[in-house]
Amino acid sequence: MRRLVMWDIDYTLLRGGGVAAKAWRAAFTEVTGVAWRDTPIFGGRTDTDICNEVFAAHGVTDCTHERFFARYVELVDEIKHEFTVQGHLMPGVREVLAHLGDDPRVVQTLVTGNIPEVAAFKVAAFGLSGAFDAEVGGYGTDDSLRATLVRRSLERARDKYAEDFRPVVIGDTVNDVTAALANGAVAIAVATGATPAADLAAAGAHVVLPDLSDLEASVKALTA
């Protein structure tokens, strides 16, 4: 059975340097006419979930997700060149992606709280687009719950390839770990974000890596 390796983006593959967050705030103010007041915690959450919280915190009741996300995508598109200026790849990412890309037992995709267009902008900025079958990914527009994103990705992969997969989720937050476990997936955690390694282990991660700089250890965890 092949592995479907589902990659989180932010603080797992790369740091975006606050570029998307800047566009988020600008889009919110433009679309709603409400001044930005409260910044939520973004890590490990879906854009749909964050949008719900932001609208509620600012008392917005007359704006749809579709309208907000449309402007958000436009603004990120305008400043996407800043990703490589303000952000950077996490250690070892390019090497691990390349190694798994050469392995016929592995299909790599994205399971991320980002909406699809912004996910695409982020990975393209660093030349990573070709590593992933983005068609079978799970995205922040699929649901507010991250576990549903994992399920949708697995369903899409099964439908596209007409085969079953062993799901493997890799991310840097407790939400990534719990979403993996909720779907019977192998949970690989990297301590490259704000969540300490001990917390990732306590959440039930099967393997916790400090980062992906050890190619052998990283590949072993993702393909075991």
Score class of each variant (00 low, 15 high):
2 R>T: 11
4 L>M: 10
6 M>W: 05
6 M>H: 06
10 D>P: 00
12 T>N: 05
14 L>Y: 08
15 R>Q: 12
15 R>V: 07
15 R>S: 15
16 G>I: 03
16 G>D: 10
18 G>P: 04
22 K>H: 12
28 F>H: 04
34 V>S: 07
37 R>E: 14
39 T>E: 15
49 D>W: 04
52 N>C: 10
53 E>K: 03
57 A>W: 09
58 H>P: 01
59 G>Y: 04
59 G>K: 02
65 H>F: 15
66 E>R: 10
69 F>T: 10
69 F>P: 00
70 A>Y: 07
75 L>H: 02
76 V>Q: 00
76 V>R: 00
78 E>A: 00
80 K>R: 13
84 T>Y: 02
101 G>P: 03
102 D>A: 15
108 Q>E: 11
111 V>C: 09
112 T>M: 01
118 V>C: 06
119 A>E: 05
123 V>D: 08
126 F>E: 05
131 A>C: 14
132 F>T: 04
136 V>I: 15
137 G>E: 12
139 Y>P: 01
140 G>M: 03
147 A>N: 12
147 A>Y: 05
148 T>A: 15
153 S>Q: 02
155 E>R: 09
156 R>Y: 03
156 R>K: 09
160 K>C: 10
164 D>N: 13
164 D>R: 14
165 F>V: 08
165 F>Y: 04
169 V>C: 12
172 D>Q: 01
182 A>Q: 10
182 A>W: 02
182 A>G: 09
191 A>Q: 02
193 G>L: 11
197 A>S: 15
197 A>H: 08
197 A>D: 12
201 A>G: 15
205 A>K: 03
206 H>T: 12
221 A>I: 13
223 T>L: 10
224 A>H: 14
